[in-house]
Design a protein around this nucleic acid. Structure first.
Length: 221
DNA sequence: ACCCAGGTGGCCC
DNA sequence: GGGCCACATGGG
């Protein structure tokens, strides 16, 4: 099976099993931006509490976070973990975006390549967070790779072992049509699969991709 | 009581 | 370029 068919069948099997996910629960682009930083190495449930605290105190805006002290933001986002670090990064990022681009819309006016570089230059925003903001906030066709993606692909075939973020992203983007709509749901599907099925065991009962695993396909490959 | 969650940056070699 | 560490709360 060639790579394009392989990737397509991963998605179609997940879609068939879980249905359209329609991802990133957020009301505004800025909420996506904040959520993407807060959810680093943190469960979404905890992030929701933090975002609600920001909302309830009227702090969920570029201006109020840029003008706030890191100490105040850290109290509000406490449930999301790493709260001192994340607060400092949130405040720092908002101040720089305001200073350099005026607003989030100003930043989002950049081309995809420039926007990615601008996001990556902010302290606290690495590849996955930058790509999540590009895809779910700015609607750009960028494939997001996360720990689930890596784990799932390595489970499916040994040839993905040792692939870093860039290689895995390149693999997906070379073997799919470059569609924000597709990448949005594809990433959501992979996370859904990752959450439901075990992390370390080679066999996951009920896994919708079990029949695609290398060991299950046999020598024929 | 453990283990880990939709990572990142700093430091080391 | 990779390996290891700190960062921290809440749910299973």
């Amino acid at each position: 099976m060639d790579d394009r068919r392989f990737v397509a069948s991963i998605y179609s099997n997940l879609l068939k099993c879980y249905g359209q996910r329609g991802w990133w629960p957020a009301e505004t682009n800025f909420e996506v931006f904040v959520g993407a930083i807060l959810t680093q190495q943190t469960s979404w449930g905890n992030v929701e509490k933090a975002i609600n605290n920001l909302k309830n105190t009227g702090a969920l805006s570029m201006d109020s976070i840029a003008d706030a002290t890191p100490a105040r933001i850290s109290r509000l986002i406490k449930p999301s973990g790493y709260y001192r670090q994340k607060a400092a990064r949130l405040v720092g990022a908002c101040r720089r975006i305001k200073h350099d681009y005026g607003s989030l819309e100003g930043l989002f006016a950049l081309s995809t390549k420039d926007l990615r570089e601008a996001l990556l230059s902010l302290n606290g925003i690495g590849k996955e967070t930058a790509d999540s903001i590009l895809l779910y906030g700015a609607g750009r066709p960028v494939f997001v790779v996360d720990a689930y993606t890596t784990r799932i692909m390595c489970r499916l075939s040994n040839r993905f072992k040792g692939m870093n973020y860039d290689l895995l992203q390149e693999y997906f983007m070379l073997n799919t049509r470059k569609s924000a709509r597709l990448y949005n749901d594809f990433h959501a599907q992979l996370v859904e699969l990752g959450k439901r099925h075990c992390r370390a065991k080679p066999v996951c009962p009920g896994c919708p991709l079990a029949h695609m695993c290398e060991y299950a396909r046999g020598r024929a490959q």
